[in-house]
Simulated assay, not measured.
Amino acid sequence: MALRSGAVAVVAAPAEVVTEPPALGTLQVRYGDVRAEVAPGSEFSIGRDADLTVDDNPYVQRRFLRLHIEGGLWWIENTGRLSARLTDGSGQLQASLPPGTRLPLVFDRTRIVFAAGTANYELEVSSDAPVFGPPVATTPTASTPTADLVGHVPLTRGQRRLIVALAEPLLRDRPTGRAEIPGSAEAADRLGWTLTAFNRKLDTVCEKLDRIGVTGLRGGRGNLATNRRLRLVEHAVATRLVTVDDLGLLDAVPDTGGTAA
């Protein structure tokens, strides 16, 4: 189209594309045999005396976790005094949820693990309309080292057996979602080790994880052995460092635990 001298071409702007925010789905909360649904527009609390009561454990706050919608996303908020650990369900993504913080629930499944007193707890929150789909699983290759490399932590067979012995109650008692973690002497006996060998190997495992940034595993003032074992189980179960499939290690031919961890 030709224009006369001095004329100004007026080009119509493209129509604004209005996009609707993605519809939020209903959340399903699972704790052992208990199932609950949380519909958009509602809130849901988890704690000792909440919409979902996990236990009468006095170390668990009455309202520990809160699920709610804000800014077009589902959020999980820590309104208590404990910390929790969250993963995307596959263990490939993980995050810490300290008191007073919150995280968006954007995956199809989110696993929540936390410790209170001498017990560990596990819950799962799933969504029928997640923002992100499940991650693509990686397939082990022939070059994968014999020492299992999970979360960039090489574990010997003995180290894995130690973690499984501590996590066994939670792995076996998933229908309840709650488990008491065994003491060092009990776990050592389960493995057929001496207590000295068990503690030495526990030190090595905790040092390995501490070096990659896992907190709460180093001994020191205010960090009792019980807390260290609880924290180890919390991390191992949340990140799938050990799973139900590893329980067979406990029934394998026992070793002495005396070799270098």
Rank of each mutant, 00 (worst) to 15 (best):
S45I: 11
P104H: 07
A7E: 04
P22W: 13
G32T: 03
D255G: 15
I212W: 00
A84F: 06
M1F: 09
D210V: 12
V164F: 00
R4S: 13
A147G: 10
P98A: 06
P254N: 01
Q61V: 10
A2Y: 12
G47M: 05
L241A: 02
A252M: 06
R229C: 08
A185L: 00
K208M: 07
A165R: 02
P175M: 01
L250G: 01
V244L: 08
T226F: 07
T87M: 01
D189K: 08
I46W: 00
T196Y: 11
R62Q: 05
T26L: 04
G177E: 02
D251G: 15
G158K: 06
L97C: 09
F132A: 13
L65V: 04
A115K: 06
P104N: 07
C206T: 12
T118Y: 12
L195C: 07
K201Q: 14
Y31I: 03
D55W: 04
N227F: 14
T194L: 03
L86M: 00
A129D: 12
E168Y: 10
E43M: 14
D49V: 13
P182V: 05
D246A: 01
E207L: 12
L86S: 02
L103C: 10
V10H: 09
L202H: 06
A260V: 14
F114T: 04
L249H: 02
R81A: 14
D128A: 08
V136T: 15
S127V: 07
H235V: 11
D245L: 11
P169H: 10
E20W: 11
V113A: 08
I212K: 08
T194M: 07
A115P: 06
P98S: 08
R48D: 01
R229K: 13
I69H: 13
A84D: 04
P98L: 09
A9M: 01
G258Q: 09
L149M: 06
Y59V: 13
V8E: 00
A95L: 09
Q28P: 00
A238R: 08
R62I: 03
L73S: 11
R231K: 15
P169N: 06
S5A: 15
L166P: 01
L171I: 08
D203N: 14
T101C: 11
R81Q: 10
P40L: 11
V8M: 00
L105P: 03
L149H: 11
R157W: 14
D189G: 08
A50L: 02
L123I: 01
G71A: 14
R172F: 03
N120P: 09
A187L: 01
P175A: 03
K201A: 12
L73E: 15
V164N: 02
A167D: 03
G248K: 14
Y31R: 02
E77N: 09
V253N: 12
E186L: 07
A185G: 07
W193K: 01
S96T: 13
H152N: 15
G47P: 02
R221L: 14
G6S: 07
I69M: 14
T110L: 02
T176M: 00
A15T: 15
Q28N: 12
R231I: 12
P99M: 10
V242T: 04
F44E: 03
Y121V: 12
A39S: 14
A238Y: 01
G257C: 03
P182G: 02
C206M: 07
L149F: 08
V150S: 03
L217M: 04
P175S: 03
